[in-house]
Design a protein around this nucleic acid. Structure first.
Length: 777
DNA sequence: CAAAATGTGGTTTTT
DNA sequence: CCACATTTTG
């Protein structure tokens, strides 16, 4: 290589400080980078990868695992600028889940899974667990689905298969003591059903990868030699399953670099084990440790306040995070009477800061809270003040009911045995296959140990006790799905999308629903279609000639709300949970709801370990701020519909008071170690509100008009006609609630006669003539 | 069978 | 308060 090249590399490395640079340049062995908050952790990772690429390492031999898809995307972009954009694209970079889902598809046959396996999201898993509990005739108050789901998830993250679970004395006895001895059976059934449905849940993506590597050494060896360099971000938040995958892949060549900060470990509820990072050096003797301690993000006051807080924790790797920036503003602590007042004070404070500094855009502000439920009232306040905001988290677009329903058709087309998808769509839109039929199907499926689809295909072989009408409906549903499946082989994804939307009747069902929610559902469906089309286009631009539906689905299954690229560059205030804010930074940060039983959460207060994690969470929140950090708490808060009295969080005392200012209180009054904020009276600088009364929500409920209509019409209702003989297709009728319409179909006879009526204003309804009071016009 | 009305219960964080 | 399950109604 010529001097010119090295000159460039040298210039490139000069953009880093000494410790960052050492971490980047050390590439021939294991290393652990302990990176304090704001110390340029991502910078080290991106530069290190760019450095490897510049050394001539082929991009496809680098495996880089991140915590979110968004982090991966951003890092790729930055690497593209530091090295070759084309090389950046060919890196194996993504979340554990998305990378190993890809590998599992490729290797699925080794595990006897179809390569088009479905990925069950949390809702699918829960629904399956519910069905199993019902089938086993267990009490769902004792065997709470959520609890079971968590138990199974924890087991999987600790690499305990259902077989291992059954054999574990400890777990079995633990379950006996908790009065839920049958968890092992539920786990077994759950796993069997997933397997039968050709489905993996989120945790399976990690568990099955481990099984793959354990049982198929030749496969493990292939990936070992393929991935010459392994890098992992946010190592403090990996669980045992992830840790072991990383270990297996890199134990031979030892070219592994993990980056993280034990002080920011906040995902133990998901099985993350802080010991993975604390013990890392023991797995790789000779491992070098680099510490990044200079914080480039925040002012001195913020960094030091955060340090004083985190030092209250017992367990941590010793480090000294410091800032070379100016002292900056102190953290401000505001006490309020209610959550309502808290929300309004935030808006007032944002306005104030923006007036004080015209450079502050809305996107320089973030409001961070412990629970998603806290966002609502803040949203209302922001809306009322016409402040633009964007909420992250909660359920992603793809988890909404109407979207999942549509996606389920696609899922079923790709994998006919996908039980959860089938259950969703078999009667959506309504086609007369109700719960009774569905439970008959599922009874038969259980009895014969086959999938729902198998029973549905040949109902006679499983002596399904349904009448001929139902059998015909099942048959036509089956044929419809099969014809979609055929199209999926031959036609393009956008054509298939179009067919599915029209032929299933989803489109017309949505279009005819004129209610407010109905309209938004329709818009969401349009959005989904647009998304699919865009996906196709994007793939084609990438040079993929036949866009695979299964690729789209697996991408969508692992997408979160954070990954919504749309309107990311617009100027909006960010609202999110503290968890979701990890890795981000903002000039001005509000950390709200610092109250006992909220932050720290109620669940954490009887365990020292959990409490320390909550404290780390608060640490993460504060260290997001670059210039201003404003902490609030309320004395009362609406929770579960009731107003509750709240006491200030214990964490407020953990921050050294010399870094805190309490607005409305003079400097002289606040002596260090004087907890005056606890009895501080609310300062009335333009933000005094009557807190007990909440503004009525101005949105009219969609039913209110409907109710009026119903009332009106019952008074003038015409006598019902009960003889089906008077009706025929094309008859114009009137109904109490639905108004005027026309009969488009008739089926059944006698007391079961049923009409399909297309109403002018209320859409298409199926009505039993026995009950429906129809008047012939 | 489908849709509306009523009842109930439960609260953290998320790939 | 809201999501969900169950019951009632047509």
């Amino acid at each position: 290589m010529g001097n010119k090249y090295w000159g460039r590399v040298k210039a490139f490395l000069e953009q880093l400080n000494t410790s960052q640079r050492e971490a980047v340049e050390y590439i021939n062995g294991a290393s652990l980078v302990i990176a304090g908050a704001g110390s340029g952790k991502t910078r080290v990772l991106t530069y290190k990868i760019a450095y490897l690429l510049r050394q001539g390492v082929p991009p496809q031999s680098i495996l880089a695992l991140t915590f979110t898809n968004k982090a991966a995307r951003e890092m790729k972009e930055r690497i593209g600028k530091l090295a070759e954009p084309e090389a950046a694209r060919r890196l194996w970079m993504g979340t554990f889940h998305s990378i190993f889902a890809r590998i599992l598809r490729y290797e699925a046959t080794a595990l006897n899974y179809p390569s088009d396996f479905t990925i069950y999201d949390a809702a699918d898993s829960k629904s399956l667990i519910k069905s199993i509990i019902k089938e086993m005739k267990l009490d769902d108050k004792v065997y709470r689905p959520g609890m079971i789901q968590a138990r199974i998830s924890n087991a999987k993250n600790a690499l305990i298969t259902y077989k291992a679970y059954e054999q574990s004395r400890e777990l079995i006895e633990g379950d006996m003591r908790s009065n839920v001895p049958l968890i092992r059976d539920i786990y077994k059934r759950y796993q069997t059903r997933c397997f039968q449905a050709g489905a993996m849940d989120f945790d399976d993506l990690l568990l099955q990868t481990n099984i793959l590597f354990r049982d198929h050494p030749e496969v493990l060896n292939k990936y070992r030699s393929f991935f010459q360099f392994v890098l992992v971000d946010e190592y403090q938040d990996t669980n045992f399953a992830q840790h072991l995958i990383v270990l297996r892949l890199s134990e031979q060549h030892g070219r592994i670099c993990v980056v993280g900060d034990d002080a920011q470990s906040i995902y133990s509820f998901r099985g993350a084990n802080i010991d993975n990072i604390l013990q890392f050096k023991n797995h790789f003797p000779g491992c070098r440790i680099f510490k990044l301690e200079r914080n480039y993000r925040s002012t001195k006051n913020i960094v030091e306040a955060a340090n004083s807080l985190i030092h209250k924790n017992e367990n941590q790797i010793e480090k000294n995070v410091y800032s070379e920036k100016e002292a900056g503003s102190k953290l401000s602590l505001i006490s309020l009477y209610s959550d309502y007042e808290e929300a309004y004070t935030i808006t007032a404070k944002i306005a104030e800061l923006r007036t004080a500094n015209r450079l502050h855009k809305y996107s320089d502000f973030a409001i961070l809270y412990r629970t998603n439920a806290q966002s609502r009232i803040i949203e209302e306040a922001l809306r009322k003040h016409n402040m633009p905001y964007r909420i992250y988290g909660g359920l992603s677009f793809y988890q909404r009911k109407e979207i999942k329903d549509i996606i389920s058709y696609f899922r079923l087309v790709v994998n006919l045995h996908d039980e959860e998808a089938l259950k969703r769509v078999i009667n959506y839109p309504a086609r007369g296959i109700g719960n009774t039929t569905l439970s008959k199907l599922s009874d038969a499926a259980n009895e014969y140990n086959v999938s729902l689809w198998t029973v549905l295909c040949t109902p006679l072989s499983y002596s399904l006790p349904v009448n001929s009408g139902t059998a015909a409906k099942l048959q036509s549903f089956k044929e419809m799905i099969l014809s979609f499946q055929e199209d999926n082989q031959t036609k393009s994804l956008d054509e298939l999308t179009d067919r599915i939307m029209r032929e299933t009747g989803i489109m017309s069902a949505l279009a005819q629903d004129s209610s407010v929610e109905g309209q938004s559902k329709f818009e969401n469906a349009q959005e989904l279609i647009k998304g699919i089309l865009e996906y196709c286009e994007m793939k084609r631009e990438e040079g993929v000639e036949h866009v695979l539906l299964s690729d789209f689905l697996s991408e969508v299954a692992l997408l979160t709300d954070q990954d919504n690229v749309k309107d990311q560059n617009t100027d909006k205030i960010t609202l999110m949970t503290v968890h979701a804010a990890k890795g981000l930074e903002f000039k001005n940060v509000f950390v709200v709801g610092l109250e006992e039983d909220l932050f720290p959460s109620m669940m954490s207060k009887d365990s020292q370990r959990a409490l320390e994690e909550e404290r780390r969470l608060f640490y993460v929140a504060i260290t997001r701020a670059e210039e201003n950090c404003i902490i609030t708490y309320a004395k009362s808060r609406f929770r579960n519909g009731k107003s509750m009295i709240c006491i200030p969080s214990r964490f407020l005392k953990d921050i050294d008071h010399k870094y805190i200012e309490i607005p409305g209180e003079s400097e002289a009054e606040s002596k260090p170690d004087d907890f005056s904020f606890e009895r501080q009276r609310f300062s009335s600088e333009g933000t005094s509100f009557i807190s007990s009364r909440r503004e009525p929500v101005s949105v009219q409920t969609p039913t209110s008009n409907h109710q009026k209509l119903t009332k009106l019409n019952t008074e003038t209702a015409a006598t019902a006609v009960s003889d089906s003989g008077d009706y025929k297709v094309g008859t114009r009728v009137s109904h109490d609630r639905f108004g005027e319409g026309e009969i488009t179909a008739l089926e059944g006879e006698g007391s079961n006669a049923k009409a399909t009526v297309s109403f002018k204003n209320s859409g298409v309804k199926h009505l039993l003539l026995k009950y429906a009071k129809l008047t012939i016009l």
